[in-house]
Nucleic acid binder design. Structure first.
Length: 581
RNA sequence: GACCUGGUAGCUCAGUUGGUAGAGCACCUCCCUUUUAAGGAGGUGGUCCUGGGUUCGAGCCCCAGCCCGGUCACCA
């Protein structure tokens, strides 16, 4: 069965055998190209000699010279025997000039009059050979001598125009269409492409920083028998050969620590993690975290490293440490203030909650208007106070340090205060960007912490909590004192590219599936196939050929006509059935 | 999960108290050899998200649903 879905929200439901008029014209053009002996999808390599960016950057050295370019035709201005078009390659856009007498070898000017003007469309991928020149009005252009069809486009692209002032008209801006058809988004929205190029610059910058220090980039399992390292609902799957459940990782922390046990001094991984939870502007079911573990370091060292890293990332991706995020100017220039979480709460609520028990803390929460419930322990209450009363104040990068122990089961106890841990979160623009610890490496305490967590979650949590015995075994062999950090890469990219939605920094954000094609039943297919071969056909003949009973025939033909796949015409010659439009 | 916007031509969008569905661009035909949101003349194109209901009559009103977005809740 032939399926096609026009680029339109109202027709996201996939139509059967229905092409839009624009698509029909393009398919006819495709056929005519073939009839002219032009392969619309040639196999040969097309060797280019330059990119558009190079030409525009060094125009003087290219002017008057011959170049070969390939790209997508984004617009056309046809003026009789000559035309201008816009060619877009991976590096940029430039104008090309096409003259009938230059590109056509025959007297009829077939290449120009028929191929270029009639059979090519906006969106087609072409190759050109020609001479670089400047037009009368000073636009850098290529005077085309040879035109090659490299790939015919069968669907019309959205038409986006930019005027002389740089103002964009009729922008392709519908978020749903942009995310579902990111390829179209990337073709017509240059700034979208820039975002993703910047994303790669950011990850390259981080890799460069770590590799220069001889930190080892590693890969650890995505399929894990025990989803550890964080508390979140995992995606569950099943391994057939082993007949056992497996989980997509929610974090890679416990595996990286095993590698530190194994004797690597510093390992890092860009980890695609998966969490089976809600989706919103800042959460996608799969997302990227960069985790780094360095032996013989503590969280103070990690803060210094983080400052240095982010300053470099800002420079490498934006060329400056001052980055505009929403309405705020944020400076990634080191150093960043360090504020203990209890200090932050004191500053923003006026209450010193240090040493308070659960009852006293709940009292404070009530006074400052933070909702509480029975399941909340000391750690959760402090976290809640910080989250709702303090977090949003930290626009400039700030390390919030020394979180309560209860909230941090993988973190080493604070060297001077046993109620706290050696942990920091880096806040930027009022949101968490990174989370780091002096890692807990006491295997006995680690086991106890896991068991405490188990008790906490038993209170009324639907998230299954497992104790990873193998991880504990590894710790029992001895892990050096280590500091680790996780940086939310999607969030970092959002900051550096000034996007407020995670979907803008993921090529293919998760979406609900488009509506399924309406499948034809076997009976409908049978009728439809007869009809396809003979349309129009006398209704009685069609019925005879189908061999269906009266009832079956009636139902099937009614379903087909209802969906416009078939049409019944009452004429003087009799009742005819023909293919629907 | 709750609430709020929205869904109309290929794209971006109008659409009055409920009375024959509109514009710009794109597309098609014609003119045009340095234009640039090219221009001029003419034309084609619609499951008004889906399904019910009210009505003589629904793009518009009512009910249910679908999908995007936003806000909140949830989320180490």
């Amino acid at each position: 069965m032939y399926l096609c879905s026009p680029l339109t929200k109202s027709n996201i439901k996939i139509r059967i055998m229905q092409l839009s008029p624009l698509e029909i014209i393009r398919r006819e053009s495709l056929q005519k190209l073939r009839e002219l002996g032009i392969n619309p999808y040639p196999a040969e390599e097309f060797k280019t000699t330059a990119t558009i960016k190079e030409i525009l950057k060094n125009f003087e050295s290219f002017e008057g010279k011959e170049v070969v370019l390939a790209g997508r035709m984004m617009s056309r201005r046809i003026m009789g025997k000559a035309s201008f078009a816009e060619l877009k390659d991976a590096s940029g856009r430039m104008q090309i000039y096409i003259n009938r007498d230059e590109i056509s070898s025959d007297a009829e000017g077939t290449m120009y009059n028929t191929v270029f003007k009639k059979l090519l469309d906006m969106g087609d991928i072409i190759g050109i050979k020609g001479e670089v020149f400047k037009t009368k009005v000073g636009e850098e252009s290529v005077n085309v001598k040879e035109l090659t069809v490299l790939s015919k486009s069968l669907r019309p692209l959205p038409v986006v125009k930019t005027d002389a002032d740089g103002k964009v008209h009729d922008a392709f801006s519908d978020a749903e269409l942009r995310y579902r058809q990111r390829y179209v988004d990337l073709i017509v929205n240059d700034h979208v492409k820039e975002t993703f190029i910047k994303r790669t610059k950011i990850t390259n910058s981080i890799r460069d920083f770590f590799n220069k220090r001889d930190y080892l980039e590693v890969e650890t399992p995505i399929l894990q028998p025990i989803p550890g390292g964080a508390a979140a609902r995992p995606f569950k799957t099943h391994h057939n050969a082993l007949d056992m459940p497996l989980y997509l990782r929610i974090a890679n922390e416990l595996y990286l620590k095993r590698l530190i046990v194994g004797g690597f001094d510093a390992v890092y991984e860009f980890s695609k993690d998966f969490r089976n939870e809600g989706m919103d502007r800042t959460h996608n079911p799969e997302f990227t975290v960069m985790e780094l573990y360095v032996a013989y370091k503590d969280y103070h060292w990690m803060m210094n490293m983080t400052e240095e890293l982010l300053e470099k990332v800002a420079m490498d991706s934006n060329g400056t440490t001052e980055v505009k995020i929403g309405e705020n100017m944020v400076s990634f220039k080191a150093p960043y203030p360090r504020v203990p979480i209890l200090e932050a709460i004191k500053i923003h609520t006026g209450f010193n909650v240090a040493g308070m028990d659960e009852i006293a803390l709940k009292e404070v929460c009530k006074k400052v208007g933070v909702a509480v419930d029975e399941t909340m322990g000391v750690g959760k209450l402090i976290d809640e106070l910080f989250g709702s009363k303090c977090e949003h104040h930290y626009i400039q990068p700030t390390f919030i340090t020394d979180y309560p122990k209860e909230m941090s089961p993988l973190t080493k106890e604070h060297r001077t205060n046993p109620a706290l841990t050696e942990r920091f979160e880096l806040m930027v623009n009022g949101k968490e960007l990174a989370n780091a610890y002096s890692e807990l490496n006491d295997p006995i305490e680690q086991r106890e912490r896991f068991e405490e967590q188990l008790k906490l979650t038993e209170k009324g949590d639907d998230e299954a909590m497992f104790i990873d015995q193998d991880f504990l075994r590894a710790l029992e062999y001895g892990m050096p004192p280590t500091s680790g950090i996780g940086i939310g890469i999607d969030r970092l990219v959002m900051f550096m590219t000034n996007n407020s939605s995670i979907q803008e920094v993921l090529f293919f954000p998760q979406m609900r599936p488009e509506k399924k094609a309406i499948e034809m039943s076997e009976d409908e297919k049978a009728i439809f196939n007869i009809l396809k071969a003979n349309s129009p056909i006398l209704l009685n003949d069609l019925k005879m050929q189908s061999g269906f009973s009266n009832k079956k025939w009636d139902k099937t033909i009614k379903d087909l006509t209802k969906r416009n796949l078939a049409k019944i015409n009452n004429t003087e010659e009799g009742l005819f059935v023909e293919l629907g439009k």
